[in-house]
Design a protein around this nucleic acid. Structure first.
Lengths: 149, 149
DNA sequence: ATAATTTCTATTATATTAGTAGACTATAAT
DNA sequence: ATTATAGTCTACTAATATAATAGAAATTAT
């Protein structure tokens, strides 16, 4: 399960989507209110997103947050890794958070690990090829489909 | 990440593999010691595995645990779900642990949910088609490959 | 009858996640 | 310049979930 932090982060980025073109910053408090995210928590999350160059901020009156990276190049894998940790189900197959298996005598011949690697590859394939722009596209598609029913 | 409980469970089942044919029970304390699993924790885990009919136990002297279901029909998905919870990354796409999304206005048009559904399907496809017997086969294969190097 | 082994109920410890508080800093508008 | 606005930073607290432990009770082989 992804932690709330990750889900809030993605939700917030989706809300910030229009700011990439408009360049008009959005206030944390507005996003927090509209999306039902605790404001202080969201502050911390956006600060993290800024650290990895996905968003930028402007202090003071008329300030706020805006996307600083093209929505085509903001990938779910990056957001998840930075806010929620590993995509893999076990540390011994994690690419970014690898830890040696405690109980395994020999990792290289562990059958379970082998399967876990497959699962990781399958998930990662999707997550590292889905961008923020894709999320928005999907949403539009689903909305249109719904209307036409 | 899968909790230790799940990893211990799978490890234990792999160790119990030969008991399906031999029908000779293995002691909890032996498994615990060999696999570096806290004994009391493993007791609880095996009790759970018994509840879902994967293993059976015999009390008293010469007692212990043995597989009661064919290794071809013990699937990772079942073990994970019973010991570690959802396979999905968000509750709103979980088949067995569904929860309504708190922040989403309309789940059916949520772009993120749509991707999460894809990830779940990809993971589930692997996990519900991989059996305990497959794990053992893989392990044998990896061991043989290694030897021939 | 005894020793071996699982079962059951309760409790404790540890780690992780989620959320809060408040002082500090930068900016725009006047 | 002053003021109101809005993000930044450091520290703390609360809630929840995971991991591990303790010990008495029940069952079975010898």
């Amino acid at each position: 399960m992804l932690p709330k932090k990750t889900r809030y982060a993605i939700k917030a980025l989706m809300v910030l989507y229009p700011t990439f073109e408009s360049k008009r910053p959005m206030r944390i408090s507005d996003i927090a209110e509209n999306e039902h995210i605790p404001k202080k928590f969201l502050e911390a999350i956006l600060l993290d997103m800024r650290k990895i160059g996905i968003v930028n901020s402007k202090m003071g009156a008329q300030g706020g947050y805006y996307l600083s990276k093209h929505p085509n190049e903001i990938f779910l894998s990056q957001v998840i890794r930075f806010t929620g940790g590993p995509i893999a189900l076990v540390p011994c197959v994690s690419l970014n958070f690898y830890e040696k298996c405690e109980e395994c005598a020999d990792e290289t011949t562990c059958g379970f690990r082998d399967v876990m690697r497959e699962v990781r590859d399958a998930s990662l394939h999707i997550l590292s090829n889905t961008s923020l722009a894709d999320l928005i596209k999907r949403e539009r598609n689903l909305e249109n489909k719904k209307k036409s029913d």
